[in-house]
Design a protein around this nucleic acid. Sequence first.
RNA 1: GUGGGUGUAGCUCAGUUGGUGGUAGCACCUGGUUGUGGCCCAGGAGGUCGUGGGUUCAAGUCCCAUCACUCACCCCA
Length: 429
Amino acid sequence: MKIKALNGFKDIVPGEVELWQKVENTARDIFSRFNFSEIRMPILEKTDLFARSIGEATDIVEKEMYTFVDKQITMRPEATASLLRAYIQHGLHVQKPVQRLFTIGPMFRHERPQKGRLRQFHQMDVEVLGTPNPKVDAEIMAMGAMLLEELGVTVSLEMNSLGCPVCRPGFRATLLAFIEDRKEALCDDCARRSKTNPLRVLDCKNSKCREQVEEAPSILEHLCDDCDEHFSAVQNGLQQLGVKYSLNKFMVRGLDYYTRTTFEFITENLGAQAAVGAGGRYDGLVEKLGGPKVPGIGFALGIERLVLLLQLQEEEADSSIVDIFVAGLGEKASKFAFPLVHTLRKKGLQMAMDHEGRSLKSQMKQANKVNSRYVLIIGENELEQGQAVLRNMETQEQQDIAINSDDNNNNKMVSLLLGLTQLYANNNK
RNA sequence: GUGGGUGUAGCUCAGUUGGUGGUAGCACCUGGUUGUGGCCCAGGAGGUCGUGGGUUCAAGUCCCAUCACUCACCCCA
């Protein structure tokens, strides 16, 4: 019986990993343009951390976490809780009043896998801690939009406000009354939801529920003055930065900690898993986790989903490029080539060679396949004549490179690699 | 957790009313050029037909079970 990866766990193999690198490299570039610092946290945390932050009654905590029950530790299902734990633990709020942090890594949720949803999946997570300023809400949405645009994926930005502990309870009561009136017409799931988390009835996908909910009260009309003002300022900021968005009064997030601004980057091309990124403000969370009373906002992007989108638009993964493939013919030449390749690698060149003693034709094919710019051909003749042949794979031009007539291999190598590195520098500058 | 679909070469897939596993494509190796890549041509290698039972003279094909993958519900990035 062959051993295979676990259900919902995937290898990222050459050919695909290049797209991952593209996504991550672009993200790092954008994040640093916005003055974010990277932070890395462990994957295992106390179970309690997630129960307290994400919410006891959420699906994530109730049935999706990978938990070592006997040890009361859990593999993180999302990044925000861990990041805040680290922020509090290291007193980062003291070092800088406003911290801008990002992290990239795997998350774990025991869900049934499907397109765009895995049990081990990867997120790029961004958090700004220490400011309630609505400009920051707009700024990070603009950052997400910039990143997605740079990657060439088309998404729409939807936004809502969930209010705060002052105004949300009132809205919740109003909504509950509304739901109570038409609970007969709602689906079973919504009947359940109306008890556990009534706001979620708003974003049920069931068409019957949608009809009912169409007339539902909007939270945007029940915001307190502070929240209303904040939300207007966020929209102002987005307009100033030229970020397109739409309001979605039915958008609700699945994690308990969100307050005020929430948003999702949505695509039409991934089937059911439409959100490639989502986040929002969580002004009470740091305090709830035992930290200082500081507000925060952040969002996460799903790398798998971004890679899927890139694959969909048939993005070519950049294949790795080799500077020089050294083709050694015969035992003597191979023996000479082996340390030569090593030395050139030390000099910073991307080198490749064949160790299997294959024919020149075969080695040329290999060189072609690894996208080599040059092939250096060294055979018995070349060793004797003190010259190696350097072939430019693109132009097909060949030229001789001197090897000292000195019998000492080391000296030969020195002159050869001097010639090569010079030539290489000339050709690339 | 609940439904549907699919399991044949490393990958994408043919395979008739049950009758010897495909000259299929991509990828791989060798040769066509004594030592020169991409294109082309020729040859080669590669499979317990997901697994276990059953029906039958005979099962990749029919039946049952099981596992895996996948899409959707749900949930979310």
